[in-house]
Design a protein around this nucleic acid. Structure first.
Lengths: 267, 267
DNA sequence: ATAATTAGTTTTATATACGAAACACATTAC
DNA sequence: GTAATGTGTTTCGTATATAAAACTAATTAT
């Protein structure tokens, strides 16, 4: 009972959280392509709860269709119901439907891949992708997360925050050196974002991955806030830096403007 | 306290279920493209729980990233974390990775859309899609669910069950007449499935949607069970019935065989 | 303007979800 | 073979999550 007081350890601060739900969701998150099958005991170890609790939680998730028993085994794997949630979210995002035709034209005209992304805390989450028909294809599928500070799309989205908000957001977060071009301090990041703002675009040349170029611009809605970022990405060999800026950027900005207009933004 | 005994009403039978988790998941499922924003009171009404409970559950989901407050409002919308689960599931399904290149060839050669689907109870769930380059594109995205009895892919997947299992699965389920070709009784369905089995394929001609044709075949793995269904679909005007069977079917079966082989199936 | 309604949040007494221990039955060790 | 460990499941007393009520702070009605 002496550890009843030491509840602050790694748990969320709020005293209103319901443990059954936290744990249930953590179970779903515990599954991965490396660990696709977990038994009750595995789950109990993973979450540091008793086997009886793990048992009841798993049973609940199974009954709801979020977990499935694998045939002729007592182990569980993720159930197909987990797909529903994600696709319901995307279906509700009319920005995806609005943007897609423009993105298809963009990809058709530039021959490269295009992505639409939104910010979730310090992450960029990709919510739409059009594969270029004629060149190396993107491996960034819908649902992919990247650190915002290290990607062109991410920096565009961070530009919507004030310096104070940025500082709060990145308080205690370490910026990892991914390639030679990634910002290493919040100061660096803020400077880059200020530069982006005056340019109106972000060019990332091997910032997140060697040999990968990406050019991103903001999309705004009727509130005038930056709600998404539209980008094109390709190998650094497809277009040179100047070709990207001279040939691709105007096309990209025009499509972004069309999407913003469709979302109610008045220029 | 008199209603404490009447717990069986619509709740799950099992006495080990943890209510906090059930309710939390039901909250996530309550959001839809028609109702993208819900407040604490809305949620309380929707789940028939007290506002204080709805409050604590929402707070928990918010802290976990599964719900987000919409700006300048107390309402919630789905958080982007829900995407993670679905895409983790798909990433773990190596059948998708294995099938995709074959599906791309298939779509390239036949010029129409191809889908890969698995069964989840009485539903078919689509887990991969390749859009045809030259014709009307499919609106059946990854994650889409359809009633298994009414689709070609679904009937192929149902063929893996014994008649007894089929009867159990559809016990108390009403088959709705979707078009003139949908089976209306379990007897009809079983007859159709028996026919499919001897044919080795299912042709659905306007079965689920007017003007839509779909041709599906089974995919088996090392256990010799039908684990997925591969199909092509197109408007009924693209290919005639006989063209589908003579030109497209051999190609489809060959690709399905390749995928089955890659999954360990020995012919 | 004022009252009435509805919203989200906080408190608190009690119904209940939880961990510990026991159980049954595998699988592995020796 | 038997012992030893590991698994999923069940029971049971107690710590705790919950519903009801109280409390604010917004909206809406009048």
């Amino acid at each position: 009972m002496e550890n009843a007081l030491v509840k602050t350890e790694s748990e969320q601060s709020n005293r209103y959280m319901v443990p059954g739900l936290i744990r249930g969701l953590k179970i779903l998150q515990a599954f991965s392509s490396e660990k696709p099958f977990l038994g009750v005991s595995d789950i109990a170890r993973e979450l540091d709860v008793s086997r009886s609790t793990a048992f009841r939680l798993s049973l609940t998730l199974e009954n709801m269709g979020f977990l499935k028993r694998v045939k002729h085994s007592k182990k569980y794997c993720l159930g197909l119901k987990v797909l529903d949630l994600g696709f319901k979210l995307l279906a509700g995002m009319d920005i995806v439907d609005i943007a897609r035709p423009h993105m298809e034209e963009l990809s058709e005209n530039t021959k490269v891949c295009s992505h639409l992304a939104v910010r979730d805390g310090i992450s960029v989450v990709y919510i739409a992708r059009i594969l270029g028909k004629h060149h190396t294809v993107s491996s960034v599928g819908v649902g992919t997360r990247f650190p915002a500070y290290a990607t062109s799309t991410g920096r565009i989205l961070l530009a919507n925050l004030s310096i104070a908000e940025l500082a709060t957001l990145y308080e205690g977060i370490e910026l990892k050196k991914i390639t030679k071009n990634t910002p290493l301090t919040i100061g660096d990041l803020i400077n880059q974002i200020e530069q982006d703002k005056s340019d109106g675009y972000t060019l990332s040349w091997e910032t997140y991955e060697k040999n990968l170029a990406s050019l991103a611009v903001p999309i705004r809605d009727n509130t005038r806030e930056i709600v998404a970022s539209l980008n094109v990405s390709c190998p650094t060999t497809t277009y040179s830096r100047s070709e990207l800026l001279e040939q691709v950027l105007p096309e990209l900005m025009q499509k972004a403007a069309s999407i913003s207009t469709a979302l109610g933004y008045r220029h």
